[in-house]
Simulated scan of single mutants.
Amino acid sequence: MFLGSHAINMDAKGRMAIPTKIRESLSSFCGGRVVVTAHTEERCLLVYPENQWQELLPKLEALPSFNKASRRIQRLMIGYATPLEMDANGRILLPTPLREYAGLEKKTMLIGQGKKFELWSEQRWIDWLDADESDDDIPEQLHNLSL
């Protein structure tokens, strides 16, 4: 399970070092192989351990092709999906199209989401935290959740 938030610097070539604790988990869980793709609702990236992605991919492919929303999800998630492997120093190299999609520059935030991570530009993450989301309806499932 991937938890927590981590500030990570990315170099000019798009290389970023995965924090040691996460690196160890990824190494044991998926041999350091991940799939990075576009988030469909936010301008950030999703980072899946390769085995989690392999479970998700058939579900994405099975979405109805004549549904506009389904096609958008497929085009973004499958179209941007990029297999990556950590190098000996625990770094991954993010390709330019992925960096451009998420607006990633030097300062990034890696946010644990259980079975995956989100990778945000630090500024977009701060903007998202500061945004007023009070207009969104609370899903029914959350009404009885006690935090």
Rank of each mutant, 00 (worst) to 15 (best):
15 R>V: 07
79 G>S: 08
138 I>H: 07
136 D>V: 01
141 Q>S: 13
45 L>E: 14
12 A>K: 11
17 A>K: 13
25 S>K: 13
123 Q>F: 01
54 Q>W: 05
105 E>H: 05
83 P>K: 13
48 Y>K: 02
134 S>T: 14
58 P>F: 09
74 Q>L: 08
31 G>S: 13
5 S>W: 03
128 W>V: 01
114 G>K: 12
58 P>Q: 05
83 P>Y: 13
79 G>F: 09
130 D>N: 14
93 L>P: 00
45 L>K: 13
144 N>Q: 09
23 R>Q: 09
52 Q>T: 09
79 G>N: 10
63 L>D: 06
137 D>M: 06
97 P>H: 02
75 R>C: 02
62 A>P: 10
54 Q>P: 02
6 H>R: 06
71 R>Q: 15
61 E>Y: 04
23 R>V: 03
83 P>G: 02
50 E>Y: 05
119 L>A: 09
11 D>C: 06
108 T>D: 07
131 A>G: 02
99 R>C: 08
105 E>R: 08
114 G>Y: 10
66 F>N: 14
125 W>T: 00
111 I>K: 09
146 S>W: 03
92 I>L: 05
24 E>K: 14
40 T>N: 11
80 Y>A: 01
52 Q>G: 04
116 K>S: 07
78 I>W: 08
83 P>D: 12
59 K>E: 15
74 Q>Y: 11
15 R>N: 08
2 F>D: 01
85 E>G: 00
75 R>E: 07
84 L>A: 06
52 Q>N: 07
118 E>A: 07
21 K>H: 13
137 D>N: 09
67 N>M: 07
121 S>K: 03
134 S>H: 04
9 N>L: 03
49 P>I: 05
137 D>K: 06
96 T>S: 12
81 A>L: 07
54 Q>R: 15
105 E>N: 11
32 G>R: 06
78 I>P: 01
74 Q>E: 14
16 M>F: 15
80 Y>Q: 00
85 E>V: 11
141 Q>V: 14
69 A>C: 00
119 L>H: 10
83 P>A: 14
141 Q>L: 14
65 S>M: 13
54 Q>H: 14
76 L>K: 15
50 E>H: 09
129 L>W: 01
50 E>L: 12
116 K>P: 00
39 H>E: 08
103 G>D: 12
113 Q>K: 15
60 L>A: 04
124 R>M: 00
18 I>L: 07
108 T>I: 05
